[in-house]
Nucleic acid binder design. Structure first.
Length: 218
DNA sequence: CTCTTGATCTTCT
DNA sequence: GAAGATCAAGAGC
């Protein structure tokens, strides 16, 4: 706990709230930082990726704080764009600031943010969120799950937010998507990426140090 | 806790 | 026909 504010006056009709269990501070919806514009993504994917840690991703107001991402680039053998444009990955070759959603293992959806500039075909895979907004809606979509594992993986967070192929190629700074900058500093950790078989040694996985909402410990 | 496996679709060989 | 930027459940320790 880094800050404790003054205690607000208690409204006369708030007696029901008084008997609720106190929530851990990290599960309360924190205030949102300034909205990220498309230009935020017009930089190296390795600058954008760590800057996304601590930012908040919402789809129709439901989502949470990004705690884990991975960076991919067309020169990277592990990237979907490595072998050139295809119908699936075409949006990666377009301008930055758009979503790229793909089907994973025939079952799951995963979402990326396109970065850099037209033709560079780089993107950040969003791998885990700390749920903060619309937690009941996310629980309904995911079934019975504890908060820690609600969005602790790229397929899980898409299911929780209701992301499907319909949400591919959408601008990241317009409804139904919104992104909000991190407030203050974050301690970023890096490591090798998860679940790939090519270019396995590049340390292009970025995470929020100590978070309990990661897909896997660093 | 770790390890294995099935589910199921798109892309590429 | 095989592989893949995954997940959940079940077996074993």
């Amino acid at each position: 706990m880094q800050h404790v504010g003054s205690i607000p006056p208690v409204p006369a009709d708030s007696h029901l709230k008084m008997i609720q269990k106190p929530q851990p501070a990290e599960t309360k919806a924190p205030r949102l930082g300034k909205a990220l514009k498309r230009a935020f993504f017009a930089r190296s994917v390795h600058e954008v990726a760590p800057d996304l840690i601590g930012a908040t991703l919402l789809l129709d107001g439901v989502g949470g704080i990004i705690v884990e991402v991975e960076a991919y680039h067309h020169t990277d053998p592990a990237a979907h764009s490595f072998r050139g444009p295809t119908p699936r990955n075409l949006v990666m070759f377009g301008p930055p600031g758009f979503s790229y959603v793909y089907r994973s293992y025939g079952i799951h959806w995963c979402v990326n943010f396109v970065c850099e500039k037209e033709g560079s075909a780089s993107a950040v895979l969003i791998r885990a969120l700390q749920p903060t907004h619309g937690i009941p809606a996310m629980r309904r979509r995911r079934g019975l799950h504890d908060e820690r594992t609600l969005c602790s993986g790229p397929g899980k967070l898409c299911e929780a937010l209701g992301i499907t192929i319909k949400h591919s190629e959408l601008p990241l700074d317009a409804p139904p998507i919104s992104l909000h900058a991190r407030i203050g500093d974050a301690e970023i950790v890096t490591g090798i990426r998860i679940g790939i078989t090519k270019a396995v040694d590049f340390p292009w996985r970025y995470g929020l140090k100590g978070s309990r909402f990661l897909s896997k410990a660093f």
